[in-house]
Simulated assay, not measured.
Amino acid sequence: MSDNILLEVCVDSPRGLAAAISGGADRIELCAALETGGLTPSPGLMALAARAPIPVYAMIRSRSGDFVYDEADMAALLADVDAVRAAGLAGVVLGANRPDGSLDRAALSQLVAHSSGLGMTLHRAFDLAGPDFAAAIDLAVELGFERILTSGGETTALKGLAALAACFAHAGDRIAIMPGSGVNIETLGAIRARLPFREIHSSCSTASDVTNSKALELGFVAARPKRTDATIVRGLKAALAR
């Protein structure tokens, strides 16, 4: 299982993008505002990422909050897909739920059709569809997603190992299951001992101190913002190769 495991790193800034690439990431999930779980990146960041030497998939999520979308939300999401295509990125990261947490077939079908020709990841809206994830996996396969990013419905992949193992068993070779959330050097051993993953997702980030106290006071930055660290990317890649 040690051969050719792909590391996807999520980033939300030019600095993070550069750090992920220099550290040896295999693919980028490009976002804005990772502290809210990731939003659609700006056109400027997409344009910068289009020059990356590795595939870049952009988050399609126009607002924070849940993944229950009305007609206006859908219009924004479809326009975001258009922006990704115009930038020349490799793919999109999609998700939509019904109020009961199940995946929204109608919304996802529309998003998938609009994303034709782009790679597609189903994001952690999937985690709201549990605890029985079988139907959600079947829908993702039917719609043509390449992979599902999931923590097994828990706050971290480590806590969701039992559900993740069931997801791998149900998915088989029909779709990739990509563990994510809380994936780092410390948790990798326990995750790989339980799951036959071929792709894994991490922020590879470290918390940093705020240098401008006024910016913190005015609410422009988080108290302990996280930044992608090339050394952490490099270390995780090396651990995956062992």
Rank of each mutant, 00 (worst) to 15 (best):
D12S: 05
A135R: 06
D70T: 05
Y57A: 13
G130K: 03
I232M: 08
T155V: 10
D173M: 08
V93W: 06
S102R: 15
R51C: 01
G189K: 14
F145T: 06
R194W: 06
A19S: 05
R63W: 04
A50R: 05
A163D: 15
G23I: 00
T121Y: 04
A193I: 01
A136S: 15
D229K: 04
T231E: 12
R85P: 00
P179W: 05
D132V: 12
L122A: 07
S205K: 11
R63E: 06
V9T: 08
N97L: 09
G38D: 03
F133A: 12
S205W: 00
P196Y: 07
S64Q: 15
R98W: 00
D173G: 14
G117F: 05
R198H: 09
G182W: 01
L139M: 15
T121C: 09
A50T: 02
A134N: 07
R227K: 08
L7R: 12
E29D: 08
A58E: 01
I232E: 10
A52N: 07
L34V: 02
L164H: 12
A165F: 04
A49P: 07
L164R: 13
A49T: 05
A18K: 03
L164G: 12
E217F: 07
R124K: 03
R174E: 09
G38K: 05
G152R: 14
E199D: 13
R198W: 00
Y69V: 10
T231I: 00
V11A: 00
T121N: 13
A58Q: 02
V112K: 09
Y57D: 12
G37R: 11
D3M: 13
D70P: 08
T36M: 13
D26C: 09
D209C: 10
L218F: 09
M1R: 13
D100R: 11
G182S: 04
G91E: 09
T156V: 06
S109G: 13
F133T: 02
E154M: 14
H123R: 10
G16L: 02
D82L: 06
G65W: 09
S115T: 01
A134M: 01
D12Y: 00
G101A: 11
M59S: 07
A171H: 12
D26F: 06
S22R: 15
C204L: 07
P99Y: 07
L94A: 13
R242I: 02
S64E: 14
G95D: 07
A49G: 09
L30R: 12
L158I: 08
L78G: 05
M59P: 01
S202V: 04
S115Y: 05
I5Y: 04
C167K: 14
E186Y: 00
S42E: 05
K237T: 05
L118I: 02
A230G: 00
I28V: 09
R194G: 03
L122I: 08
D138H: 08
A90W: 00
A223Y: 00
V183R: 06
C167N: 12
A223V: 09
A79E: 12
L30Y: 06
